[in-house]
């Protein structure tokens, strides 16, 4: 399986993302500069965290118009797994690939800490290796992770089981403790916590590795690859 790690000007978690899938997961990975227009040959797309375009105007608002985003949309429509972490999540929201928007953290503080998450849905390509209701520890690092959507959208998210991760204790004011959601089809996941920073016990937690293992297992099953 080959992953594309999209690099925007201002991305700063691209190396961690590459390391997670290449070295810890053992899959193939390549950096793709945001000015590229094709994702042909890639089986999965990773949008890393950071501060694309310096968070100017709104987080993710300018990156969503990068040339590569048409190819990201196409990959999503084709059913390929697309994962956006932190700023990557914010870009997916601005691009309309996921519903809702991000606000400043309720207490206006940049939060950088390991947090407890609850796995709410294991029926996605990203979470099959977890147990339902499992508590995992994954670090967050954001100033704008206060997820907002209106009540009608929240109802849809709940009815379609699109809420995948919640904070055990609401750290930033997010609606319904939301830490990560998928699109309706389930192949696009956005989350504020950083699974790519939790892939080695040396760094405090490897609870994030199962997310990448889930993606790989799902791809192998889908393509009937047994090895």
């Amino acid at each position: 399986m080959k992953f594309a790690v999209i690099v925007f000007p201002g991305s700063n978690c691209d190396l961690d993302m590459y390391h997670a899938v290449k070295d810890e997961l053992g899959a193939e990975a390549e950096y793709v500069w945001h000015e590229e227009t094709s994702l042909a040959g890639f089986d999965g797309v990773l949008l890393p965290g950071g501060f694309s375009y310096g968070d100017y105007l709104r987080t993710g608002a300018i990156a969503r118009f990068s040339p590569i985003m048409n190819a990201v949309k196409q990959a999503a429509e084709e059913g390929k797994p697309v994962l956006g972490v932190c700023n990557g999540f914010q870009i997916l929201l601005e691009a309309g690939l996921l519903p809702g928007a991000m606000l400043r953290n309720e207490k206006l503080k940049f939060i950088c800490a390991p947090v407890k998450l609850v796995v709410e849905n294991t029926g996605t390509p990203f979470t099959a290796a977890y147990d339902d209701g499992q508590e995992i520890t994954i670090p967050v690092a954001h100033g704008e992770g206060n997820y907002f959507c209106d009540e009608a959208t929240l109802k849809q998210l709940k009815d379609n089981k699109q809420i995948v991760f919640t904070y055990k204790n609401n750290i930033n004011g997010s609606v319904a403790n939301i830490a990560g959601i998928t699109n309706k089809a389930g192949n696009v996941l956005g989350m504020m916590p950083h699974p790519e920073r939790a892939v080695d016990q040396l760094l405090g937690s490897k609870d994030g590795l199962a997310l990448f293992q889930s993606i790989l297992s799902h791809w192998r099953e889908k393509n009937a690859i047994t090895s």
């Binding site: 709104r58 118009f65 601005e94 928007a101 606000l103 907002f148």
Partner: peptide
């Protein structure tokens, strides 16, 4: 398209 995010 860009200047405002009409969700919020």
């Amino acid at each position: 398209k860009l200047l405002a995010n009409t969700v919020i």
